[in-house]
């Protein structure tokens, strides 16, 4: 635990000069999901860890990228606050930097935003080994390009994230989970309908024949909504297990695809093992054709886990999108040494 950013920058600068690829590693919690397998000299970030600044009254937390999400959750919890996206802690292994690089969010994401939405500022090391700082600790900042937020989902192919400042939020006063026995189709209809109502809904998922809705907020509002919506009250809700990917249905053998689609998409409701995010995130096994189908629905699909991870795992891009990706990669990592091929084989 400590500040090893100078050392990290030095290593990257060396690699830049020698043109040797680096494989950036946080806690290793997502090593075999989302991206492709890559070769490279490991660059370990886990040691670059620790909360640097946390001021509950400002709703701002600043921590080094290697800090485990679990540690941050604990600290915030002690002050009655939370990371709004329910960022998965993955058995204590997920780190803050890795979570932003993958933009990994839990079930609250449609209502409370993703880690990308919470970013106020970052410290980064670009592909030349330069230490850069973008944004800061204030809530609003539109000076210059939003290079910080752009790291979300880049899987470390643009820069090494070394520090993050985030907006955090108070924990809701009360939460309550309601369950309903429904088919996937019917559950989707209910989720979509409920999401248009001005009620304190902040999670909606379906798996194994059950729709779960979570209410959270002021006690009176939660109670009155629960009464209005009916359903069975659930004592042991599945949200934590969903966030951490521990549901049995997400851990079967086979190639697991993660779909990010408009909630009205007709894609695979009944084939999905889990529908989350109020219908916007769906999980299916062994359907390679779904990757192209998702694009035509203005969404996308990842080969999340399993399958051929030497081949592409990320959603296909158009020619112009590819050109912009390549240009941006060259602008931040001109020698292509940061996680080359992790996001796309050609990037």
């Amino acid at each position: 635990m400590g500040d090893i950013s100078t050392q990290l920058a030095h290593t990257v600068a060396e690699a830049y000069r020698a043109r040797t690829p680096l494989k950036i590693r946080g806690g290793g919690s997502k090593a075999d999901v989302l991206g492709r397998d890559v070769e490279g000299t490991p660059l370990d970030i886990a040691e670059h860890s620790g909360v640097i600044d946390y001021n509950p009254a400002e709703l701002v937390l600043t921590a080094r990228a290697g800090t485990p999400i679990a540690e941050i959750n604990k600290l915030l919890g002690e002050q009655g606050q939370q990371l709004p996206p329910e960022t998965p802690a993955l058995a204590g292994k997920a780190t803050l930097g890795g979570s932003l690089a993958c933009n990994h969010s839990g079930p609250a994401r449609p209502w409370q935003g993703s880690l990308r939405d919470m970013v106020l500022g970052t410290r980064l090391i670009n592909g030349r080994g330069e230490q850069l700082r973008f944004g800061g600790q204030v809530m609003k900042n539109v000076a210059g390009y939003d290079v910080s937020r752009m790291q979300a989902g880049a899987l470390g192919t643009l820069a090494v994230i070394t520090e993050l400042s985030l907006k955090v939020l108070p924990r809701p006063e009360t939460t309550k989970t309601l369950a309903y026995s429904l088919s996937a189709h019917d559950a989707l209809d209910v989720m979509r309908q409920r999401a248009t109502e001005p009620r304190p809904l902040n999670a909606a998922c379906w798996f194994e024949g059950t729709l779960y809705l979570r209410l959270s907020g002021a006690k009176a509002a939660v109670e009155s909504t629960a009464q209005l919506w009916g359903g069975d009250s659930v004592e042991q809700p599945p949200w934590q297990a969903i966030a951490d990917g521990e549901l049995p249905c997400l851990n079967q053998a086979g190639s697991l695809y993660r779909l990010s689609v408009p909630t009205g998409s007709a894609l695979a409701p009944s084939d999905s093992v889990l529908i989350d995010w109020g219908g916007a995130q769906r999980w299916v096994y062994d359907q390679p054709e779904i990757v192209a189908a998702a694009v035509s629905e203005r969404g996308h699909a990842w080969l999340y886990r399993g399958g051929d991870r030497k081949n592409e795992t990320a959603p296909p891009l158009t020619r112009t999108q590819r050109q912009l990706h390549t240009a941006l990669k060259n602008a931040m990592d001109p020698e292509g040494i940061l996680n080359p091929g992790r996001l796309y084989s050609w990037l």
Binding site: D146, M150, G153, A154, L158, V261
Partner: peptide, 13 residues
């Protein structure tokens, strides 16, 4: 039109 962005978050940029 899903919630996440495929590839780099150029919309944020």
């Amino acid at each position: 039109d899903g919630l996440d962005n495929p590839g780099y978050d150029m919309m944020a940029l």
